[in-house]
Computed example of a mutant assay.
Amino acid sequence: MNLPNNRAISLIVAAACAGLIAIAIFYFQNHLGLEPCYLCITQRVFVIAVGVIFLMAGLHNPAAKGQKIYAGLATLAAFGGSFFSIKQLWLQGLPEDKVPACGPPVDYLFDAFSATDAISMLLRGDGNCAEVQWQLLGISMPGWVLVSFVGLAAVGLFQLLRK
């Protein structure tokens, strides 16, 4: 069985990441009116990072050593995004009395605080991140994003270990 080459896989995964972001913005945010919380935005950044790494790998089409570097970076980014998906799932599972307070909108964070402070707040999450706004088959949005990150990490590992 002939598997697609590294370039084709990289470009397909980059397109899949672009599709995930498009669905998040155009369907969930614009059509359904769901506002992304701090951790949602952080997860989007990691999906974009994975997509950009795979796009660079596809456009560059490096030799084996370069492909392994791109695959390793993409896998690390997918693991990073997984961490924030798990963190949001943990917040969603907290009892109501343990949920942290809700913070200000993201626009305000970057207007009122330094970039490092605003990013730190984004990475911590807040009470808004504990709210389950949407589910499919009993799994909330960060659960599905985690499934996506696991798939992206699996492709990255496949590319990394591929001969």
Rank of each mutant, 00 (worst) to 15 (best):
P100S: 03
A18V: 09
L76H: 10
G72L: 11
L137Y: 06
A71Y: 11
A49S: 12
C37V: 07
R162M: 04
G103I: 12
R44T: 05
C129R: 10
D117Y: 02
Q29W: 13
G80M: 14
K163M: 03
N6H: 12
V145N: 15
G93V: 04
L39C: 03
S10G: 00
P4A: 07
Q159G: 06
Q67N: 15
I12P: 04
G72N: 05
L32D: 12
I139E: 03
L76S: 14
A101M: 12
I48V: 14
F46I: 05
V47C: 09
A78Y: 13
L32G: 06
Q67Y: 12
Y38P: 00
H60D: 13
T42C: 00
E131C: 01
L152D: 02
L76K: 13
A115M: 15
C17F: 09
Q92C: 04
N2I: 12
K87F: 14
S148N: 10
V47M: 11
I69L: 15
I9M: 04
A130M: 09
T42P: 03
H31P: 01
P36T: 05
L55T: 08
L152C: 02
F28E: 00
S82W: 09
V99I: 15
G156T: 00
A115F: 15
G127C: 09
L109G: 03
S148P: 07
F110V: 07
Q135W: 04
N6R: 12
T116R: 06
T116I: 08
I69F: 14
V145Y: 10
N5E: 15
I12W: 07
Q159D: 00
L136F: 05
I139K: 02
S148A: 14
K65A: 15
V150G: 00
Q135I: 02
F84K: 11
A18Y: 10
K98E: 15
R44E: 00
L59R: 05
L157N: 00
I53C: 08
G51S: 09
N5G: 15
V147Q: 03
F79Q: 13
A154L: 00
T42Y: 05
Y27T: 07
P36S: 01
N128C: 15
M141R: 06
L122E: 00
W144N: 06
I69N: 07
N30R: 05
A115P: 12
V155W: 01
G66V: 05
N5Y: 10
P36I: 07
A14M: 06
K98Y: 10
F46G: 03
E131M: 06
Q92I: 08
R44I: 00
Q159L: 15
D126Y: 11
F28L: 09
P36N: 02
T75V: 13
A22N: 01
L20A: 11
I119G: 05
L91G: 03
K68W: 09
V147L: 10
K65P: 10
A18D: 08
I21C: 05
M121S: 01
D97I: 11
L91P: 08
L32M: 12
I69G: 02
H31G: 06
G80E: 14
